[in-house]
């Protein structure tokens, strides 16, 4: 006998126009970032975005194993995105699926443009992302976490990369789509995860699932960039917090 799946709410917007969790259309969920959470990793970060709990640990640059993956003219970036078995409502199989492999790849491509991998030929930078709790938008939160972990390693980066999603539900464009909103298909849920390099004003991750007009696309790109700025401020604050020593005299 199967378990009854969780039921979805009747409406996704309250009468006053706010969203189920009380957010306005352009508001992020609670976002807290902590850098340097792992002792062994060369760089690490914990991202708490809504109920998402994501830990990224980065190693390198280091020798490539297996050797044949090494490139003599550049370093490589290898991202591994994995969801813990207990990160979702129904236990996930511990075997990595196609979705996890795809997200590993797109997160890697989102981060790579800010790195100077050619500075480290024959080496690899490995970032291992573990989703401890998933609540919608994990690939965006993973980008945020991976960028902080790599910055924490102390290798040069052109910019930080901030991940945030934008969506369209019941013909309204909203920032930072939550799990419930994403699954609310009655309104033709459209989800567009994006990674932005705020200082460079570039987009390095872009996917979309749903249906929108070109005009809506333009509007969404603008809104998601504003969201990226908010995420970037949190990243900046977290990185500074780790290294600030306010309690010691100056």
């Amino acid at each position: 006998m199967p378990l009854l799946p969780e039921s979805l709410p009747e409406t996704i917007f309250k009468d006053d126009g706010t969203r189920l969790d009380g957010r306005k259309f352009n508001e992020l969920r609670d976002l807290h970032i902590e850098v340097g959470v792992l002792k062994n990793a060369d760089g690490s970060a914990l991202v708490c975005h809504g109920k998402n709990r994501i830990i990224a640990g980065a190693y390198g640059p280091r020798e490539v194993h297996p050797r044949h993956l090494a490139k003599s003219d550049t370093g490589i970036l290898q991202i591994s995105y994995r969801m813990a078995t207990f990160s979702v409502g129904e236990r996930k199989s511990p075997v990595p699926g196609r979705r996890e492999k795809e997200i590993s790849m797109v997160v890697g491509k989102a981060i790579e443009p800010v790195l100077f991998l050619e500075q480290y030929p024959n080496t690899t930078i490995d970032v291992f992302i573990t989703v401890l709790t998933a609540d919608g938008g994990t690939r965006c939160a993973s980008v945020t976490a991976a960028a902080c972990a790599i910055a924490d390693m102390g290798i040069p980066m052109k910019d930080l990369v901030a991940g945030v999603a934008v969506g369209k539900i019941a013909n309204r464009i909203i920032l930072d789509v939550s799990d419930k909103e994403d699954k609310w298909e009655k309104g033709g849920a459209t989800d567009m995860p994006v990674a932005v390099m705020v200082n460079q004003k570039q987009y390095s991750l872009l996917q979309l699932d749903g249906s929108i007009t070109v005009e809506q696309f333009e509007e969404m790109l603008d809104l998601v960039f504003e969201g990226g700025k908010l995420v970037y401020e949190k990243q900046k604050e977290a990185l500074r917090r780790k290294y600030s020593t306010e309690d010691v005299g100056r």
């Binding site: 792992l38 062994n40 990793a41 830990i55 591994s80 078995t85 511990p94 291992f128 573990t130």
Partner: peptide, 15 residues
């Protein structure tokens, strides 16, 4: 019980 040695936990752990 299942145990997963997350590769970020140590350079000795592998995927």
């Amino acid at each position: 019980c299942m145990a997963e040695f997350v590769p970020s936990a140590s350079p000795m752990f592998e995927s």
